[in-house]
């Protein structure tokens, strides 16, 4: 076999030409208009003051940032992360088997099942949330069913509880977990799973040693798509949680539209965004460190 020591394919460096830059221009413009400009505006606001009417006064101050780190808001941020983390975990636990199952189906059925995952997007988010209210309210569908079947005698208090918030969050974000995991699972060659079994890995170890690592990009994308927006979510806490437990999204929204304190809202937003960039960068660096 020594005769067969052929070399591995070479990885050549590529350089982007003018055409590539031209092709990138619309994206760059898009990023500038919808990411850089608003973010810059946010940063500027965050160092400003407000006047009596809530108008932004361009008067430099660190005050807003000092207030962000008040224990009140740190506690809210902590709670938001907690809710988002719980939502993410539940989404993985429910979404992974669903995505895996769909990915393993034959073609026409697979597309139909995927469509079912996406159908809720065809109606407005608010309408779907109101549908959940109709299900969970004390004279609602679920309580009606439970009482009819004799499981409970008095209606359960489901709506306007933290449980309802988590149900709402999981419902809203589950497709964002299923779709990327499906993307990874669908690409996973079944022979790899068979190879793991063949080499003595039972279902659990095949899952942990082969399936999880190979679908990890999908899981990671799902986590990013669920965890980050879930932290900032405010509509579900208002509608399904009865606005009882404020999450960071509620506080920020509140600063802009109720308390008329845009600079403070902006400061909260900036800190929140920085926190994510930092977390993402750290996670990314660790990932690169492990793959290198």
């Amino acid at each position: 076999m020594h005769a067969l020591a052929d070399t591995a394919p070479a990885h050549g460096g590529r350089r982007a030409g003018v055409v590539a830059w031209l092709l990138l221009a619309p994206l760059a413009l898009w990023l500038l208009l919808f990411v850089v400009v608003p973010m810059a505006g946010l940063v500027v606001y965050s160092f400003c003051q407000r006047d009596d009417l809530g108008r932004v006064v361009y008067d430099f101050s660190w005050e807003n940032y000092a207030r962000v780190f008040d224990p009140i808001y740190l506690k809210i941020l902590g709670r938001s992360i907690g809710y988002a983390a719980l939502t993410t975990v539940i989404c993985i636990v429910i979404g992974y088997p669903v995505a895996w199952y769909i990915a393993r189906q034959r073609s026409p059925l697979r597309e139909r099942l995927l469509l079912l995952v996406m159908i809720p997007f065809w109606t407005s988010f608010l309408i779907r949330t109101y549908a959940w209210i109709a299900i969970l309210k004390s004279e609602g569908l679920l309580n009606g069913l439970l009482q009819f079947s004799g499981v409970v005698t008095a209606p359960l208090s489901l709506l306007y509880t933290p449980t309802a918030v988590v149900i709402g969050l999981v419902y809203a974000y589950l497709p964002f977990m299923i779709l990327p995991i499906y993307g990874s699972a669908e690409k996973l060659d079944n022979a790899l799973v068979e190879a793991a079994h063949d080499l003595g890995a039972g279902p659990i170890r095949a899952f942990s040693h082969v399936i999880i690592p190979l679908t990890w990009p999908g899981i990671a994308a799902g986590i990013m798509l669920v965890f980050v927006p879930a932290i900032g979510m405010f509509a579900i806490t208002d509608l399904m949680g009865g606005a009882q437990v404020p999450l960071i999204g509620n506080v920020i929204q509140n600063q802009f539209f109720r308390a008329r304190n845009a600079p403070f809202g902006a400061a909260l937003g900036v800190v929140f965004t920085l926190l994510f960039i930092l977390t993402y960068a750290l996670a990314h660096r660790r990932r690169r460190a492990t793959t290198a």
Partner: peptide
């Protein structure tokens, strides 16, 4: 003691019996 806060349509929770 407050079950929920709602400015937009507080009547809904009352009508729903919540």
């Amino acid at each position: 003691r407050i079950k929920l806060y709602d400015s937009d349509s507080p009547k809904t929770a009352l009508l729903n019996g919540d």
